[in-house]
Amino acid sequence: MKTTQTIFQDGDHKWLAIVRDPAKADFLIDTNEYLITHGGQGMLLDPGGLEIFPAVFSAVATEFDPSAISAIFASHQDPDVISSLALWLEFNPQLRCHVSWMWSGFIPHFGGVASTFAPIPDEGMTISLAGLSLQAVPAHYLHSSGNHNLYDRTAKMFFSGDIGAALLPADQQGLFVKDFSTHIRHAEGFHRRWMGSNEAKHQWCSRVSQLDIDMLCPQHGAIYQGEDVQRFINWFDSLQVGVLRA
């Protein structure tokens, strides 16, 4: 079973990280899911694949009523991001799935009806969760061609999807980055290969540098906090991406 850790809290406004399942099969890539709660409602960020639904559901249920999850934010269309959609809809058929307009005709293959999908335009948009304003931030071609991150200005939390992801060895499974220079070695190969555009990367780094961020939360690996956030953005900005070999 995955564990749930509260990484931000201010009253009923919370960010929960759902992470690290020791029982997960090795051949499935490990994923981090995040739940934002506010005003009794929840928004699940990149809820994960069908296979890990039981582990994510049970971890969420320890902290929050899953039927109060009113929205899902999918950074992009990958199966490890959103293939569990049909099962989350079992708990709330009115649930809205916010995803790039590019994928709003593809993701329904995982489940849902027309009203399930709230397409996000290329330039991003503001999404409300019980009055809390969340900003969908463009991150196209990093790695998906229709890709968004999610910024919570109030909490200074930034969900970065695959950006910042690291494939961590079994003995380095901490939730937070402790030593940037050691950690980033596990992120380098992933970013070089998965991220497809240097130009898009520069634009993203420039855009995100202007945001006030306490924690940068990727879908795989560990969370960057404090000065490591800008350290990561600088590192990423200077990395040559879209190459087969380092």
């Binding site: 079973m1 069908l50 049970s58 099962l87």
Partner: peptide
């Protein structure tokens, strides 16, 4: 899959 969730929750 839901039965597996029942075991955990």
């Amino acid at each position: 899959i839901l039965e597996r969730a029942v075991v955990l929750a």
